[in-house]
Amino acid sequence: MDKLLEVKNLKKYYHISSNNMSSQNAVLKAVDDVSFDLGKGEILGIVGESGCGKSTLGKTILRLHDKTDGQVLYHGDDLFEMKHQEMTALRKQMQMVFQDPFSSLNPRKKISSLIDQPLRIHNYGTPAEIVEKVESIMEEVGINPHYKKRFPHQFSGGQRQRIGIARALALNPEFVVCDEAVSALDVSVQAQILNLLLDLREKHDLTYIFIAHDLAVVEFISTRIIVMYLGKIVEVASKEDLKKNRLHPYTKALFSAFPMTDPHQRDKKEKIVMGDVPSPINPPSGCHFHPRCPFAKDICRQEYPPLKELESGHFAACWLHQES
């Protein structure tokens, strides 16, 4: 499999000043030493609870945020080494679909000028060619081109998300980060958008990173899944492996907490995890999960476990499965 993207020891820290007077700034490690590869044609799901850094990771990969440390190699070239012009040119190939279809479309722009914006920025062609492209892409995502003179607020959430997708796909990218792309939508509309994303992937040979907190959605759409907790990757495995064998206690807890849509199962579930997600500003020592982990040992409190390949292609960062 061709490597499209390599993320190496990526870190993204935020300095939080609690007030202007104090010189002691807290550091929020939103993404803390994250490494993974992404092969062409994959759909890599990233799951985790709020504050785990999945969204920051997605945006840093596209260099929408600056990094603190580490590398993001796209076809072998480091994005953060690129000059402004090179980066702008590369944006044609990597795109993003956002969570909130209400705030991710400029309310003052008509649909046509929202979709033709990327085409104009990257000098797609003559005005007539651009109009033609806008109409064809609107059809492709299932919005009647007849409505192109309308404003975003005149559409429903699902239709706005289609418009967001149309924009992202206008330049025929090869890599798209979907950040909670269906989370704000009603269930029946969510299914339509998931289908659309899958259709477009087949048609345009796309590679996705699919970030979501909804485990059912990620499990359905992804080929491989990364589980994150407080800025770190705790487990990576193919969808099938992860279903069969969840190695990290957090992964187990997360999946068991997810409500199943079968009332007959309700009393059979094991309840594992207790307590709250700790603040990412001052995470627990050692393995960040140890205060909530029923299997925590001494070493878990002292040292963060490395992410290790325990089975072929199945990584986990947990002391239960390795020696220090």
């Binding site: 929408l64 956002f98 400029n106 990327p118 967001g164």
Partner: peptide, 9 residues
């Protein structure tokens, strides 16, 4: 939408 347009270049 600002981030979205930046992502478009």
């Amino acid at each position: 939408y600002v981030l979205a347009e930046r992502a478009l270049g």
